[in-house]
Design a binder for these strands. Structure first.
Length: 455
RNA sequence: GUGGAUGUAGCUCAGUUGGUUAGAGUACUGGAUUGUGGUUCCAGGGGUCGCCGGUUCAAAUCCGGUCUUCCACCCCA
């Protein structure tokens, strides 16, 4: 039988030791910050029922769900031959589970399902993989990790402010230069209302979003050709040329949206968030960006997105407020807000900008060369003492050529190599070699531990 | 889902208008060096040329299909 070529599914990746060490550095960093702000961990299953997932991410999102084929005789629910010809409806008959698409919707499901055990406001973080049947490309994978922080059960804008602080703190620890972009769905709704096109909010937002790419004129053309009346498009122009300092923007918006109740509400929210933020010393720039739309259609208030300034990879973090996500599952009037850090893109950014600390690569600090059975016994005893002193150490498991043992230590970035042969055993000492400088000295066990403990 | 590129040794890549037994660097193994790695020198193993089919006396090379990876759009982390 011919050996099959080993492979993994499209858009998925293996993470080797170096990658894992680096990924864990990211996970540990965000986790530490999340904890510091009072968030608690949560995990939900890889699979959810499709009824939980469908309809929450818009039409596009539904298409990108990975569906899990029913077990057993999955065709038993298919009524007749004819149904087999219609793929879209067939798929609903033979699948009832799907891989989770994000962490927020399963979180909302969890909150509703366990509402009696939860004290609100509920602050949780969640670091897990999610799956999307997207076509992979740069910074886009079919399996990727999100690090979510959400607070649910409070309408306070303090939560938005806290999330911005968290974001700022995480990226400043990681050393990534970012711009935090903020917008508000209510402002966008107000803009649509001001144009007299309240029901076309999404269409208008998407068009505004393209302004950097295709320019103001094309945006206008696109709007008119999609059925927005020209006079309404005229009213949009001040929004399209929107620029200036934060306060100027807010004044401008105030004037523009004065007739829209919901719009004014959005502006007030933005102002309050900035008012709170003015008391903090943030490292990152926080900017109002009206072109920020965000596709997930459950957002209702503030929306946030973080862009890396030094690497072009799309957003590395995003989120917002959702007023009624739990309502779909039967728990009304519970507002939540959260953000999601895209671990994989953060990894890519840090790799490109060379931001990972160098000492991450190090594992074993001390390796004992194996000289044979008797020496092994002697070393094992020392090894235990060294390990108990909190120093990560190992012994080469086989008595093979020294050259091989030394290259093993070299490739593994081991800091020191201990050599114990007949002479050393007789003296009760250990020859310690510094792999970087090449220096060598004879030490007692006590001196050895002392030397390695200082550094 | 739409459009464009790509695939040769574990990895990075050469390979002429189709023409002997498909190469290099690196990694690996052994030796120079039986108690010293990262430098050097020598030798060695390792390839269904992504897969299937077609054209041809002859295909890594030309044609068709298919898959993979990458890039852009869409969308997003």
């Amino acid at each position: 039988m011919a050996a099959q070529k080993p492979s993994i599914p499209k858009g998925t990746r293996d993470f080797g030791p170096i990658e894992m060490v680096r990924r864990n550095y990211i996970f540990n960093t965000v986790q530490k910050v999340f904890k510091k702000y009072g968030y608690l961990p949560l995990e939900t299953p890889a699979m959810e029922n499709l009824s939980t997932l469908l309809g929450k991410y818009g039409e596009e999102g539904d298409k990108l769900l990975f569906r899990v084929l029913n077990s057993g005789n999955f065709l038993s629910k298919v009524p007749d031959e004819k149904s087999l010809q219609n793929a879209p409806s067939l798929v609903n008959l033979i699948t009832e589970k799907g891989l989770k698409y994000d962490l927020t919707v399963p979180f909302a499901r969890y909150v509703v399902q366990h509402r009696n055990d939860i004290t609100f406001p509920f602050k949780r973080y969640q670091i897990q993989p999610v799956w999307r049947a997207d076509r992979p490309q740069k910074g886009r994978y079919r399996e990727f990790f999100q690090c979510d922080v959400d607070v649910i059960g409070s309408k306070s804008l303090l939560s938005e402010v806290e999330l911005i602080q968290i974001t700022d703190e995480v990226f400043s620890i990681l050393g990534i230069n970012v711009k935090i972009k903020i917008n508000n769905r209510k402002v966008l709704a107000g803009v649509a209302e001001m144009m007299g096109q309240a029901d076309q909010m999404m269409k208008i937002t998407i068009a505004i979003d393209k302004i950097d790419k295709i320019g103001i004129e094309k945006v206008n053309e696109e709007l008119i050709s999609s059925g927005i009346p020209p006079d309404a498009v005229d009213k949009l122009q001040p929004v399209l040329t929107f620029s200036g300092l934060r306060n100027e923007k807010l004044v401008l918006l105030r004037g523009l949206l004065s007739d829209s109740e919901i719009g004014m509400q959005g502006v007030c929210e933005l102002e309050m968030v900035f008012d709170y933020l003015s008391g903090f010393d943030l490292k990152s720039e926080v900017e109002i960006d009206l072109s920020l739309a965000r596709g997930l259609n459950y957002y209702t208030g503030a929306i946030l997105e973080v862009e890396a300034l030094d690497v072009n990879i799309g957003s590395i973090c995003g989120g917002g407020r959702y007023d009624d996500l739990t309502g779909i599952f039967g728990l009304k009037d519970v507002s939540g807000v959260g953000i999601s850090f895209g671990a994989d893109r953060i990894y890519d950014v840090m790799l490109q900008s060379d931001l990972f600390p160098l000492d991450l690569a190090q594992t074993t600090r001390l390796m004992f060369v194996n000289f044979g059975k008797e020496e092994e016994r002697f070393c094992l005893d020392v090894l235990a003492k060294v390990r108990n002193a909190g120093i990560s150490a190992e012994i080469y498991p086989d008595h093979v050529k020294m050259k091989k043992q030394m290259s093993y230590a070299n490739n593994k970035n081991v800091e020191f190599v201990a050599m114990v042969g007949e002479n050393e055993m007789a003296e009760g000492k250990i020859s310690l070699k510094n792999m970087e400088s090449g220096e060598q000295e004879k030490l007692s066990v006590k001196e050895l531990i002392a030397k390695l403990s200082v550094e």
